[in-house]
Structures are given as C-alpha cells and as structure tokens.
Amino acid sequence: MRPIKKLVPILSALFLLPSCAATHYSSSSYGYGTFWFYHLFEGKQSILDELEQKVASTSFLLDVDSIDAPNGVAVLNKEKTAKPGSFLRNCLEFAVSMQEATNGYFSPFSGNLTSLWLDNLGEGKVPSEEDIAKEVAKSSSTYLVFDGESVNKFGEGQIDLGGIGKGYCAKMLAEELKEREITKYWISGGTSSIVFGENPNGKDGYTKVELEDLPGKYVYCKDESISTSSYKKQLYEVNGKKYSHIVNPFTGSAEVNLQAAIVKGSDPAVCDALSTAIYLEGVGSISKYEKEFGVKVIAVKDESVVYCSDGFEILG
C-alpha cells in the first residue's frame, strides 16, 4: 500500500499531461467598421463571447450613423446633448485630452470633413477649396462641455471617434482580461490596432507582427500594443495626386505625406491617437511623443523606413 501512496503525485501529474496541449480559443466578430480577431491562450470559450459582445455594443455607441444607439455619438451629433454611459463618456474625455496633447492634429470633430473627402474621392474628384474651408472652420470651432452626467457639444463639427475607437475598445478589452487574471492573449481590431499579452505559441511569449507597409518585415510584441495609421488600404488617386482617408484638421487636406505611422506602447488608445497625429504631423513630431508617452515609432514613406525609435527592432 505504501509504494502506491508514494506514487500519488506522479500519477496526478501524468493525468494532467494531456492538458499540456496548449489551450487556444479563437474567433472573429464585426465592430467599428471592421473585423476583430481574438486569440485567448487561457481561460474559456465563453470569455470570447463576452468580448465579442462588448465590441458590438460599444461599436454601436460610437457609430456616427446609429441614431438608435441610446445616448451614443449619433445622438450627441444630432441633439448636441446626451447622457452617455461611462464607456462613451470616458472615450470622449480621452479624445479631448489627446486632441490637446497632439495640439489638435488628432481631432475628434472632423467627421464632416472626412466624409466630404471620402464622398468626393469615391467619385474620383476632390472637394472644392470653399467646401473644405467651411468644414475646417466648423471642426476647429467645436468643443465639448462635460456637465455632470451630460455631455454638450458646441459648434457645428461632427464627432467622429474613428481615429481612436478601436484602440480605446482594445484597451477596455485588455483591462477586462487583466481583471480576470488572463495574461495570455492577443486581440486585433481590424489590422490597425492590436493589443498583446503573452503568446505561448510565439517565440519567448512574443507575437510576430507582420508589417504590411513594409513587405517581408516584422516586429515582435508582448504585453503591449501597436497601432498604425496608413494609407495603404484606403489610397485614392485623382489627377496624379495621392489622397487618403486621414484628413489634416488644420489645412483640410487629405493629400498623403507619410505612408504609415506605426506606434508601439503600453496603451492601445494612446497608440491609436498618436499614430493619426504622427501620420499628419510628420517625422519631426515623433521625438516629443516618444518623450511624453514613452512610445516607440516607425515612420514609413514609399515602403522605406524614414524613422525608427531606438530599441524598436524591425526584423526580416
């Protein structure tokens, strides 16, 4: 009987051996105008369902066309006042703080300006100078006042949180997973905003991230996030000039300068906002953001690296 007792720990370990085959749950869902991909390397399937639900419900709130979303962005744009829940309120406050931090290069009030460009580019033309000037004036004079539970919009600019929505949502999902003590995962909002925990299927827990703006090149990420603003997937050419979906809120121009601004850091929402600002401001702006937010940046022009922060290693 005694030898059998001694074997109990060994037997228990052997019973657990099959669980060494790595746990991996993956799924995809639609939100924020794109597809989200979820990879959990611990936890359970039902957590993915909850994450998908959160993406869908918050996407509805931020959708500029979803007038049915109670106290969402569409209502705030139309009624100029709303009592948003904590998610949207915090997101709006964050957007305003990033507008200040980027001296206005990230603007949450350029919705109509962006629509003006996309509508015209879709028809193969550029908007008139007069129309652009009108929309720039509207967006630059718009601001929010947070008053108790209410948020009030002053000015004619339309709120559009497309520049930070995915990053802000990715941050919320990462916080949700942290509360559940889940550290092994990565979640991608489209292909422009990704948040990483540890990846047991990657090298030393890192996830390999292929950079579509630099074919064949990649970086590694772990316990951090990465965002890009790039024209690669939304490039328009009119009369030999290249335009993108990202519009300069000061000049009203959608003409391209950088091809992509890739930002890596601890906060996916900050990375998302900074990638837009750097894309518009150019390489000269990067060092101040590196210092202020502790981010690392790759700037790409014509498929070549024109800036790469110290310690941000590009492989391949």
Binding site: H24, S26, S28, F35, F37, H39, F41, W186, S188, T191, S192, I194, F196, N199, N201, G202, T207, K208, V209, E210, L211, E212, D213, Y218, C221, I226, T228, S230, K232, K233, A260, I262
Partner: peptide, 13 residues
C-alpha cells in the same frame, strides 16, 4: 478566417 489559426502571428497594416 481559420478556426484553428495558431495565433502565432498577427498582421498590422
């Protein structure tokens, strides 16, 4: 997408 993509790598673009 693939039901059993190992999640070893991501795409940024």
């Amino acid at each position: 997408y693939f039901s059993e993509d190992s999640g070893g790598s991501a795409i940024l673009g």
